[in-house]
């Protein structure tokens, strides 16, 4: 390939000029990087000491930005709704599916309660250590995925998922409204929270309760996404 024939001189020179311009701007910008780019976190970290929660990320997700988390859960619900709308199948093609390996069946049956237990642990201890509702919910959904892969007859009851999801959504909003009535702010922390109780399972007032609710909601929605995507593959 001859560069001079295939690419015109105007293109080459303008490319060189723009690359030089970008590099100049970048070098000027990179020389003047401030030491600390964000400063809102320090005041939040100071406020954090009043909540009795060891993990500051949990406090930001659930308490300081709790209303945004409600909106994000709504986005997740709409995505799950759309996938169910696109991929729902009328018939369950369980008949012509290949029976899976015996070792896979046994291993999945052994691992399923352990993974569920780990997901519940990550969900419940979200205010004391790494983890929380989002991660725990997705871990539970991956356990459900393992059962779907191994067993032909495993099926999530729509009734149960519907009840869990409705309960989680309604109780999130209800806790927020109770906080609005009692403490004068939406999602206000109306339960007793004290820094002296730090390390107990029920420290931090409403923070662990709301994270468990988020975990139930995320887990049921992700499990529904898994079921919809796998069921579509059965019947064609």
């Amino acid at each position: 390939m001859n560069i001079k024939r295939d690419i015109s001189t105007t293109t080459l020179s303008s490319f060189t000029l723009s690359a030089f311009f970008v590099l100049t701007v970048l070098s000027i910008l990179l020389q003047n990087i401030p030491q600390k780019l964000f400063s809102a976190g320090d005041s939040l970290l100071k406020l954090n000491s009043d909540q009795g929660v060891a993990n500051a990320v949990t406090t930001v997700v659930v308490y300081f930005r709790g209303f945004d988390t409600l909106g994000e859960i709504a986005v997740l619900f709409i995505a799950s709704f759309g996938i169910g709308l696109m991929l729902t199948s009328q018939t369950h093609g369980d008949k012509n599916k290949v029976k899976s390996n015996f070792m896979l069946q046994l291993g999945a049956r052994l691992l399923f309660p352990i993974i569920i237990l780990f997901g519940v642990y990550v969900m419940t201890f979200g205010h004391l250590s790494v983890g929380g509702g989002f991660q725990g919910g997705v871990i539970i959904a991956s356990a459900v995925l393992l059962m779907f892969v191994s067993s032909n007859h495993f099926h999530l009851s729509h009734r149960v998922v519907e009840v869990l999801e409705t309960f989680a959504g309604i109780s999130y909003v209800m806790i927020g409204l109770i906080g609005l009535i009692v403490v004068d702010s939406f999602l206000g922390n109306f339960l007793p929270h004290n820094i002296s109780q730090l390390g107990l399972l029920l420290s931090g007032g409403i923070v662990p309760i709301i994270y468990i609710i988020i975990g139930i909601k995320v887990g049921s929605e992700m499990s529904l996404i898994v079921q919809n995507m796998l069921q579509r593959s059965d019947n064609d």
């Binding site: 320090d42 500051a56 930001v60 994000e72 799950s80 929605e221």
Partner: peptide, 17 residues
């Protein structure tokens, strides 16, 4: 700073959905 961690944590879940 815990704020970017919290925002990215939710953004990952939403992005995958």
């Amino acid at each position: 700073d815990p704020i970017p961690h919290a925002m990215i944590l939710t953004a990952i879940v939403i992005g995958m959905a």
